[in-house]
Amino acid sequence: MNHETESMNQGRRDFLGAAAGVSAAAVAPGMFLHTPVANAAARTEPVTDMHRWGLLVDTSKCADGCTACVDACDTENGLNLQSKPLGDDKLKWQNQRSTWIRKVKLQDNLTGNVTNLPLMCQHCEHPPCVDVCPTGASFKRADGIVMVDRHTCIGCRYCMMACPYKARSFIHEQVDQKLTRAPRGKGCVESCTFCVHRLDSGDISTACADACSAEGHQALVFGDLKDPTGPLRQALAKAPSRQIRQDLGLNTGVRYTGL
């Protein structure tokens, strides 16, 4: 009986190995989209600080009225499965539903110049949300992704008070439909994870950046801030960029050009 178990697990392992090989081979030619890294497969070792994931937003390419990134994020993380609880006020619900990424439109007070940009969790190096969390549920992963451990979040919302970017949402209602890759439930706080389930499967991409490219805007470049030859660092080197609330010195993982 044990022997049979062994062989079954062996079979499973073989399958995983083969799949990993396929995906590694498959990913390699896709360099223009996805940076190949040493372990382009489901990881078996914990993440390290060898990488720090980041995003560059070119606001000059971010189109007015386009919500491709927002829609893609909603689909990717099951946020499109949210529905207004019966009896809730329509406008209030818009302010209560989870929003991981939002399109922001700004006008310069002096020049009248209009700028569009997506705003999400900025994945700070020194995240205020992590400092204030009483249980440590709000944490920064070794590779720089700021996340919420929903198993220890008690829903106190102190992180939402602390976040300078209004990036976090509290789940105000019972969640009936959720995706396997993005578990979420009532009473916890959540925010953008840089599509961490993709990264952990060896795919260096986010739904928002992919959607932006698919629309032909190419306003979002996702990648490794620690890889000097990677697409993100190369894009960052080309144009001056800044952080939102740069004065706070949080060293965000999301940078903006043309702001």
């Binding site: 209030k92 399109k103 922001v104």
Partner: peptide, 10 residues
Amino acid sequence: HNVIQFGAPG
């Protein structure tokens, strides 16, 4: 800057 739009209307 003046924030003209911030996500969905509500």
